[in-house]
């Protein structure tokens, strides 16, 4: 039985792996309906309080790994009407309070 698997004859290992990956995603999705959508909305609302940006130039991506998942947020902020120099990170929470 193992021998066949070693020589890669059968397609069952592929089926097994595809299922494991798919079901890990689907089970997550059931417990957190549209997690990415919620994150996107809240992150954008937060950042737009401090800097202006084009909502079309935002990329939010989640890579779900087996033990660790990564969330990547990529927002393009034009220097002309954002803040000079260090971008929105330069704005301190104190600045927000001052508004």
């Amino acid at each position: 039985m193992k021998l066949f698997k070693l020589f890669g004859r059968g397609s069952a290992p592929v089926a097994r792996e595809r299922l494991q990956i798919l079901l890990a995603h689907e089970r997550n999705a059931l417990h957190q309906p549209d997690l990415l959508g919620v994150l996107r909305e809240e992150i954008l609302a937060l950042i737009s309080r401090h800097v202006s940006f084009d909502p079309d130039k935002v990329q939010i991506k989640m890579d779900r790994g087996k033990s660790v998942s990564t969330l990547a947020v990529d927002i393009e902020i034009p220097n002309s009407y954002g803040v000079a120099g260090g971008g929105f990170l330069a704005r301190s929470p104190a600045g927000a309070l001052a508004q």
């Binding site: 039985m1 698997k5 059968g10 397609s11 069952a12 089926a15 097994r16």
Partner: peptide
């Protein structure tokens, strides 16, 4: 078929 690795085995299905 399961023995030849052509079909998911019992263990595969149970584990999943």
């Amino acid at each position: 078929r399961a023995a030849r690795g052509e079909m998911l085995s019992i263990d595969d299905v149970l584990e999943i």
